[in-house]
Every structure is written in C-alpha cells, then in structure tokens.
Design a protein around this nucleic acid. Structure first.
Lengths: 343, 343
DNA sequence: CTAAAATATTTGCGCGCGTAAAGTTTTTAT
DNA sequence: ATAAAAACTTTACGCGCGCAAATATTTTAG
C-alpha cells in the first residue's frame, strides 16, 4: 500500500526510476511503452498509489476521455436502464461516462449542454426532451461536439440517431391484437413531448388503414413525466364514459398502460387476453416493470442492448474518425412482440 | 451573441475593461465586486459568451464546487427519485452535482470512490451498497472527503447518516395490520445486501413480541437487485406451498411486494383489504409505482424530501464548518402510513 | 474636504501535466 | 556485427487560472 504521499508525476517518476514524459505516455496508453519500463512503473504504482491529476490532464489534452450521457428523465426506469447499459459500455472502452438527467426541464437540458461543452467531452450520447427541447441550443452543441442522438429523434440534430422502428412495432402489435380479438383503440397523451408518441399515433393510423379497420385515437391531457398518473386519472374518465369503441386498447407506452390498468382495476373491469375478460390492454417498450403488472402487460420490447451498443459504437467510430460524418445516419431497430396476459 | 471567440480570462478581462484577478473574483462570487464593476463584466459577458475553464479552475482551487452523489442502483426508481431531489438541491446551492451508480457491484463502488477522490469534491452524498460494500475503502474515503451517508447506514462510516426509522415504521405497520385483520407474516430476501432489511426484520420481531403475537419470518433466496423478480418467483412457491401462517404478508420493501402481488394474481388469489379477499399484502417505502399496482399497495412512505433536504444540509454545514464533526450523527425520519387497497 | 476604509489593479509565482525537439540508449533486423 | 528503428531521457514551453502582496484608486465617514 501507499507509503509516503506522492504529490505529482515528477515525484512518482523519480520513485519509479523512469522519466516523467515516459510515465505520462504510460498513463495515456500503457501498451505504448516497453514491457520492461511498464513493469517498473507498475511496480512503483503498487507501492505508492499515485493517480495523475485529472484536471491537469484535461486542461492540457485537446480532447478529454469523458463521454457525456444525457437522458430526459432518469426517474423513468426505461432511461435508467438504458443509461446503465451506456455507462458500462463506455467504461469498458476506457472512457469515463458522466451522467446527466434533464428531469423533464428544458432550461436544465440547456444548462447541462452548456456545462458539457465546457467539459470538452470526447463525445455525447443524448436523448433529448423532444418537442420541449431548445433546438437552437441543440444544434449549436452538436456542431461543436460529436453527438449521437438516441431514443428521441429530432430532424437534423446530431450526426446519427439510434432508436426503434415505431412503424414496425406498432403495425405488429395492431396486427396481433386484430388477429386475436377486437381491433385496438389508441390511447395517448395529447401533445406529448416525446417525438415517438407522434410516430406511434401515425403508425397506428396507417396500420389500421392497412387492415381496413376503423381507427379511434383517444388523446388525453397530461403534463410532465408522470405518465402512470395521467394514464390512471384520464383512463378512469375515459373508461367511465365508455369512450373506447372496442374492448381493446393500445397504449402509446407502457407507463400509460400501467396507469390504465390501475384505472380499470379500480373500476372493477377485468383485463386480460382471455375472452372472459371485459377489456384488453397493450403497451409499448417492455418497461422493466411490465412483467409484474396484474395482469402482466402485453407489449413490444425495445432492444435495450442493441440500442445501447449501436449508440456507443457509432459515437466511437465518430471519435476515432476524427471528424463528423457528412451524412446523418438513422438506425432503427425492430421491436419484439411480448405476449403476456393483458392482451 | 458571441462575436469573436475569447480564449481565456486574460482576453475576456481586456474586453470588459477589468483586470483579470477581478474577473476571477467575480466568477468566484459575483457579489464580491463593486456593482459598477459587476455591471461592466456582465455587459461583456452578454457580448462574448465566455466561461472560465473548469479544469484550470479545479486544478488551482484547493476545493472544487463538485458534490458527488453515489447510489447503489439507479435503475431502482426509489434511488432515481432521491437522486433527483439531491441534484436539484445541490444545483440550487451553486454546486455541480456529479451522479454515479454502483449498479449493485462492489468493485464499481470502489472505482467510483477512487475516481471521486481524485476529483477533490467539496463533499459526497453516499448511499452505499451495504453488506457488499468494501468497508476499508469506504473508511479511507470518508477520512479524506466530507461524506454524508444516506439510506443505508454502516456503523462508523461517514460523518453523518440520514435515513428512516425502520423501528417506527414497521411497528406502525404491524400495529395497523394487526388491528384490521390477521397479524402479518414477514416476507424478505435472505442475506439481503441492504442493511435496512435486517433492521426491518428485527423491528418486525420486536413489534410482534410487543403485541404478544407469534411472528413468522419467511426468508427467500435472491441475488442482485431484481427484487420484483425474486418476490414473484419465490412468492409463487411460498404461496403454492401455503407456507404463510396467516393471510397477511408484510414485505420487506415495495419492490418485493410488487413481485408478490404479481405471483398472487397469477395463482388466482385475490388480494385486498376487504375481507372478501383471500390475502393482504403490504410493502414498505412507498415506491413511486406503489400507487399503481393492482390493487394499490398499502405501505409506509419514506419522506424523500426530508431525507434529501437533511442530507444536503448536513453536508453543507460540514463543508462550511471546514472540518468533519467530532461525533457521528444519525438522523432518522418517521415513515407515514399509506393505506391503500392491498391491506 | 480630508482621512480612513473598501475595492481594483499590477505583478508574478505556481498548480500538474501534455507535448515537442534534440540527443541518447536499447532493441530489432539484416 | 552493424545499421536502422524504436524507445527512452532531457530540456523546455505552455495551458488557464488561483492566489498573494504591493500599489493605486474609489468610496464612505467624519
């Protein structure tokens, strides 16, 4: 363990019997020094636990080894889970991830990006708030820092977008629901901030048209990120008013579905795939808790791992390549149908 | 907006017609310079959006304005919510919070603390993994950096602990369940990492003794942080085996209860406070999703705001005071009974 | 209006490390 | 064994700012 305290790289270099520039080289890439030298440094490292001062390092490097990760709302387990995957992959690649949540607040998103810019990160993985985001700020930021967008696509922002194919997933879900019972109504939050919400409504309308079914979109008011609460409160009203044209409801996302399930339960309406039940409810995303609702939620699974992996890979190739690619790429992954008891 | 680019404080000072040291003083505390000078700086700030280099600042300051926040598992909405509160309070106080999740892995917790130490933060708010934590590392860390523990108490670690009074909360819950029906069995994960689990079991046993009731603790195996999964899988076995001595189950935490609710539902066992139901299930924590389970979960609410506020306050007084207090303080908040339909 | 107090400025050092150039030693290839 | 290549050492500068001391200016008090 540590004996006397080492104050800087100079002192440490003296202790290890290697010159300071070589020690510096070692810390930037241990493989870049001769094996014999490496051993000497690492021996010294065991004796005098020394770490280079990160602030001094970052001040002098043109680019840091930091990767910024920004999500719109970390208290949403979906983003928490994605963030966890992203963090792990960055760590594996030798970068230090720095995690930020906009907490649903556009001003905070701007502040975070401002802070991030002054951190001179190697790159940023950004899931923007969406409609609420300040596009000008986003645009400026992406011009300066290699940025990969994920989850929420905003046209023209960032050098790449990784997300899921809402058209594919919703069509599949509509198809399934239609084959197994009454065609679905679509339950969503009006003017939702997340751009996926829009795409899903449109995908629903297209799918229904394709299957020659009459669509019904129920848009309810709801602010903020308390989707369960909106699903519950507004769902109760809609169910009580018997607004749903069919017994099957496709929710814009799982959190809304969880709220709607809760509303149905309270009103004594049985939900389930079995025809004995009064209602069927399906969601979208395969939220971490969707397996544990009562009844368990039928939904479309997003491929968390694939989205995380591809986002990080895309960013790393951008970083390695040196410059931002000419053309903006969009990668969409297919969802997987998860048949559970609710629909 | 920004005209020509400012490279450093020297250039910016020239543009604003103020000397560099004064500008430096301004950025450390805008109120410490004369109003006239302040105006001149802020006028210049509007023209040439300049920000001091954080790395240069942090390298030269003895203490940074960073507050480290470390939670054991961010994908648990309980910690996500606490983290959100803590972040906001740090921001309000002019600090920059830096959020880390140990993701349930002790090595990662150690790495995070190592990184954090080299960041020379003004202070750290730490919710340790608990039993799995490397106590030696924690101890060393707390000796160097002002640290407030929250949620999980580890004897002697950190200068203060802020959490909830498991004795009070569990006693209240046992009392309530006993008054309104059969006395509760206690459902928990064997050898849980979190120290609260232990305290709750003991509190349960004490409470049952106090009310002269026969206790029954059911400890199931479960690794990791997938509490719902454990509650569901093991819960199904326990219910099927009719192990529970009474019809009332008090779960060690809400996430376990959510899993158990799911198990009961699958087995066709109706859960609810109403005597018509076959079973009653209660949880602990008032997890963000507890309101939306079917039936909604009766539980004890932790006072998120109080715990966050007090943790931050305690840390700030430590930071202001300069040195760590002689005596370690422990602050425990009472829980609030939340009566919902499940028990 | 003058002295005292408060605030600015000037000057200059230091933080810990990246990095480049020139010279030296070691390794690898022929 | 010798030349070429690779790795290392030495030397030196610069990054952008904190901070301290001495000096100059402005504000406030009497």
């Amino acid at each position: 363990m540590g004996d006397s305290k080492i104050r800087n790289m100079e002192e440490f270099a003296a202790k290890s019997g290697v010159s300071r520039p070589t020690v510096s080289k070692y810390f930037n890439d241990p493989g870049s020094v001769r094996p014999a030298t490496r051993t000497r440094i690492e021996e010294a490292l065991k004796q005098y636990d020394y770490r280079p001062n990160i602030y001094a390092i970052n001040q002098n490097r043109r680019l840091t080894k930091t990767i910024g990760i920004v999500v719109p709302y970390l208290a949403d387990p979906f983003f928490a889970e994605i963030a966890r995957n992203l963090e792990n992959r960055c760590l594996d690649a030798g970068f230090s991830p720095s995690l930020f949540s906009s907490h649903g607040r556009p001003e905070l998103e701007n502040d975070i990006l401002d802070n991030l810019r002054s951190m001179r990160p190697a790159g940023v993985l950004l899931a923007p708030l969406g409609r609420a985001s300040d596009k000008t700020t986003l645009e400026k930021f992406c011009a300066d820092i290699p940025t990969v967008l994920f989850d929420s696509n905003i046209d023209g922002i960032g050098s790449a977008f990784i997300g899921m194919d809402n058209g594919q997933s919703i069509t599949m879900l509509v198809d399934y629901l239609h084959r197994t019972g009454e065609p679905p109504c679509f339950f969503e939050i009006r003017n939702a901030a997340n751009p996926n919400a829009n795409k899903r409504r449109i995908a629903y309308l297209n799918a229904m048209a394709q299957f020659r079914l009459r669509p019904q979109v129920i848009s309810v008011d709801g602010a903020g990120w308390d989707f369960e609460d909106t699903g519950y409160g507004e769902g109760k009203k809609v169910i009580a008013a018997k607004t749903f044209a069919t017994n099957t409801v496709l929710c814009s996302n799982d959190r809304l579905a969880i709220g709607l399930l809760s509303a149905a339960f309270e009103l004594g309406i049985s939900v389930g795939h079995d025809p004995a039940n009064a209602m069927r409810i399906a969601g979208h995303d395969d939220h971490p808790f969707a397996r544990f609702t009562c009844p368990p939620l039928t939904t479309v699974a997003q491929d968390y791992a694939a989205i995380s992996d591809r986002s990080v890979e895309t960013l790393f190739t951008m970083i390695d390549g040196g410059e931002t690619p000419k053309t903006r790429s969009e990668t969409l992954f297919d969802g997987t149908l998860v048949m559970r008891a609710s629909a």
